[in-house]
Design a protein around this nucleic acid. Structure first.
Lengths: 402, 402
DNA sequence: TAGCAATAATTGATGCTGTCAAATAATTCG
DNA sequence: CGAATTATTTGACAGCATCAATTATTGCTA
């Protein structure tokens, strides 16, 4: 149990779509003046003033000191702007990322900035053990928050695989070996806090769209490289989840040559040559060093050992093709490349960029490739961002035990 | 010039988002009772009644005779349903598809059912010549409509390539050899009618989503096979257009083996083995018959000539992989396979289905493949559907000459 | 065949929300 | 200091969707 009376006062009340838009704008683009909010949301200034008033009273939005002084404002005459911003600490959120060997959690405020971190190793991926570990991490974070747990909106859990966020059930997670595992209910019952479970890449995509590089992008994608290859899509200002819960499955597209055998049993999958495991296997084979680690393999490639370089090149080529697929099919203006594999990004980069350029068709080539190395905490932060977004959009149906 | 005083009374007035939803529901799912409209749109019955009242007055919506009789209603007691439907002829639309050698136009009503057809051969794809041919087709259709041109909402033009529907400019159409060709303005000026220009596959996708197999699908895709391979996406109840106007570019994804050289100069493109041109070239080479037509090539394959069968198989494999890409990445519940290539679909089918099944990952395999052979008129109908949708959603900014 | 139960549609009062236009506030510039 | 300029607030107002009650029309049953 984290808190007894939680839930009521911590909820966000944004009754109309207009107020959701206004609040979202302030959250993601603040500090910002009321006039600009109106312009950017297509609403009148009056609507902004009236919507913001109760939020100021609530304390979730604050007005910065009007920045006067000709130097700052660009010497324009007129009443100075009273910049609005969301008070990060007005509401709090927990986000947890479940890895096969570890559970990592963070506590954040409304802007998904990390306040505290906690982690627990996982002995097994047995659902009960994972629920227990997540709960312990959440409780530890709750303890670190102290009195402030009243302001807790909820707990987000990020899991790789096919996740039904509406019901909080993990439908299929090959990495954890789960099928149809309900996560939200047991956790909510155990902790007494609303819980949202989401796909990890989707959660990271939300975080980057609201608080990261995708902030001004209506059509945006995240491609993750590492032990698997994944993709999150944000098109027409909405997350793509797929009719059956599956979307962004990039890892098993047949973009590589057919002599590469994938762990899924098929041939030519991107992951068959581009997952960190595949790269490592390739370098081990070529150098005849069966106990090599990925870091050592990367070191060999950096030294210029031909077989190692070729393995990373081959991976980069497949990743570049995958990026081109995303760009050609969905036409984002920005694609963020992320994931654990970023540690060796320099080794993939040349092949990625040249393959992408070769296969991006027409205007799809205008799409900007951005890179960022996320820590494990950032993934947990994604889970928090998923909760924040759902709460703001009034889609957060608190999952409690019956 | 089609009509002098056109435009004012033919416009649709649906002031609020709610009324757009209600009207759309009646249009795409009518005849339907008010209670059901309310349920399906999430609005109250009262809202439906009040929104529909002026539309009945306008004559654009009509009430069918209440279907009484226990046999029909399923023996349920209660007041019988008064089914609402959109009167197809209440507004009229023209749709024109521009092919490299021909321009085909149709006149339709609100439900995009074809009323008249007209066509003109194209001597050249010179923009001026195309504008002239489209205008002539539109005028011929206008003549066929007679007095009813008062009810004309506008003209839709479907063009393959990168089209900016907002400005009516064809940014890049390799098939026609166009770059930055303004189409809407000259046509609107010439005809005195609002004009909307759209990408052809996108237009077909809209038609199928509103009036065809995608009617109950929130997440839907169309893949076209033929001289090129294209794709239209409808995700989260919105058409995907891409940040830079390009989306659904499936034809040049590197899914085929690298020894296939594409007309675009690269290797491994889907179109390099799966476009009708590529299939024909392959059969010609194998049978050493350089003047073979596509129909003859198909006949050979139907007879079981191994080289011909192999060429179609190879194409089907690439198309199946492309379908798997769409399903894995965007997770639609339905994918419609269409295009001129459907004439030979039976020859591709086995390879398409087995490759798709092999590469559709997890729940993406639940996606239903539907096929339909569209005539050229259907493509023109797509252009009309694009106009209808824009008009209903109040996004149709009439393009007139300044 | 009347009366009851069930379902569909309408009506009018109500309240909320966003807009408009005018007023107020706070600055720069001359 | 006053005019110009820009930001924000205010209050009247209108539109729209909901709610709850009413009316409409049927099937079923006694």
């Amino acid at each position: 149990m984290i808190a007894s009376g939680t839930g009521e006062d911590a909820r966000l009340t944004l009754r109309t779509p207009a107020s959701v838009d206004i609040f979202t704008r302030i959250l993601t683009h603040g500090p910002i003046g009321r006039v600009d909010v109106g312009r950017q949301t297509g609403l009148s200034q009056a609507a902004v003033t009236k919507t913001v008033a109760p939020l100021l009273l609530d304390g979730i939005v604050a007005v910065d000191r009007p920045l006067a002084g000709a130097a700052l404002t660009g010497a324009a005459p007129g009443r100075p702007v009273h910049p609005l911003r969301v008070v990060p600490s007005a509401r709090l959120v927990l986000g947890v990322k479940v890895n096969p060997d570890e559970v990592i959690g963070v506590a954040t405020g409304m802007t998904a900035a990390i306040l505290h971190v906690a982690r627990r190793p996982l002995g097994s991926t047995d659902p009960a053990a994972v629920v227990e570990a997540v709960a312990q991490v959440a409780e530890e974070l709750g303890g670190l928050l102290g009195d402030r747990v009243d302001r807790l909106i909820g707990l987000g859990v990020a899991v790789s695989g096919d996740v039904d966020a509406a019901t909080g059930i993990v439908r299929d997670s090959p990495l954890l070996g789960w099928r149809g595992v309900p996560l939200a209910h047991p956790l909510a019952a155990r902790l007494g806090v609303p819980v949202r479970v989401d796909n990890d890449v989707r959660a990271l995509t939300i975080a980057e769209h609201w608080f990261g590089v995708g902030r001004d992008s209506g059509s945006f994608a995240v491609v993750t490289i590492g032990s698997g290859i994944g993709c999150g899509l944000y098109l027409n200002d909405d997350v793509v989840s797929g009719a059956h819960g599956v979307a962004g499955e990039l890892g098993h597209l047949p973009l590589a040559s057919l002599d590469a055998v994938c762990v899924c049993g098929r041939r030519g999958c991107v992951e068959a040559v581009a997952s960190s495991g595949a790269v490592l296997r390739a370098v081990r084979t070529v150098t005849d060093a069966p106990r090599l680690t990925l870091a050592e393999a990367a070191a060999l490639a950096r030294e210029g050992v031909p077989g190692a370089v070729a393995a990373f090149d081959r991976a980069g080529t497949a990743i570049g093709a995958a990026l081109a697929v995303v760009a050609n099919l969905t036409g984002p203006d920005t694609v963020l490349v992320a994931g654990e594999g970023m540690a060796e990004f320099e080794l993939y980069e040349r092949a990625i960029r040249s393959t992408f350029a070769a296969h991006a068709f027409g205007a799809a080539a205008d799409c900007v490739l951005v890179t960022r190395a996320h820590s494990f905490e950032d993934w947990a932060r994604g889970a928090a961002a998923s909760v924040i977004r759902a709460a703001v959009r009034q889609e957060f149906q608190p999952t409690f035990s019956g």
